[in-house]
Simulated scan of single mutants.
Amino acid sequence: DEIDLETALWTIPAEKMKMRKPHHVPLSRQSIAILQEIRAITGSSGYVFPSMRSRTRPMSENTLNAALRRLGYASNEMTAHGFRAMASTLLNESGKWSPDAIERALAHGDSDKVRAAYHRGTHWKERVLMAQWWSDLLDGLRNGATILPFPGAMAG
């Protein structure tokens, strides 16, 4: 019910969010394709990734962490929540996106309470572009991205 493939939008209701405010997530072309593909497995209603115990509940973070352990990642190397930190780091380091847009994409509030009271922007257009850029970056990494030399690196 939360995902609208026609408008490429995922609306997470307030009651599922830590800050108790609805959160809107723009969906990239790749995200839409994955959601359309998985619909054949999970159906068109309920959770995209349901719990093994009940289709009325989502898959838990612990399930994802267990999968990472089976893939050989130690808990100090990667966690399910660590993907958010990785995204934040790479989006910020790219220099392409405003910190405000990145923070809004991660559903973070402003730590400056006065600023938070007045800054209500969603940075939506930038977030739509950023979501597509992120998916394209991940595709490039999966497909063997071009490694660029560091400026001033010595040949060796």
Rank of each mutant, 00 (worst) to 15 (best):
D1A: 06
T42I: 05
R104L: 08
M59L: 12
K96T: 00
R70A: 10
E61R: 15
V128P: 08
D4A: 03
R70M: 04
D112K: 14
A8K: 07
E15H: 12
S51F: 06
N65W: 09
S28C: 06
K21M: 08
G109W: 09
A67I: 08
I32A: 00
I32D: 00
L71S: 13
D110C: 08
E77K: 03
N62A: 10
M86E: 02
R104M: 09
A40K: 08
G72P: 07
S28Y: 03
K18R: 11
Y73S: 00
E126F: 14
L35W: 01
D139I: 00
L138P: 04
S45V: 05
L9R: 04
F49H: 05
R20E: 09
N92K: 11
L68Y: 07
S51G: 14
H108M: 08
A67L: 07
H123Y: 15
M17R: 13
M59G: 08
N92F: 03
A145R: 15
F150R: 15
M19V: 14
A107S: 15
I102P: 00
N65K: 14
P149Y: 00
L27M: 06
P22I: 09
L27Y: 06
L64P: 09
A107P: 02
R69P: 01
A116F: 14
W134F: 04
L91T: 13
T63P: 12
D136P: 08
M59N: 12
A74M: 03
R55D: 14
R142L: 12
P99C: 15
G95V: 09
T11I: 03
V48A: 05
D1T: 13
R84K: 10
M52T: 11
A33T: 08
D136M: 06
T7K: 13
S44V: 01
D1V: 07
F49G: 10
L148H: 03
M17F: 13
Q30V: 01
H23D: 05
G144Q: 04
T79C: 07
R120E: 13
L91I: 10
R20T: 09
I102G: 05
T11N: 07
R29G: 09
R55F: 06
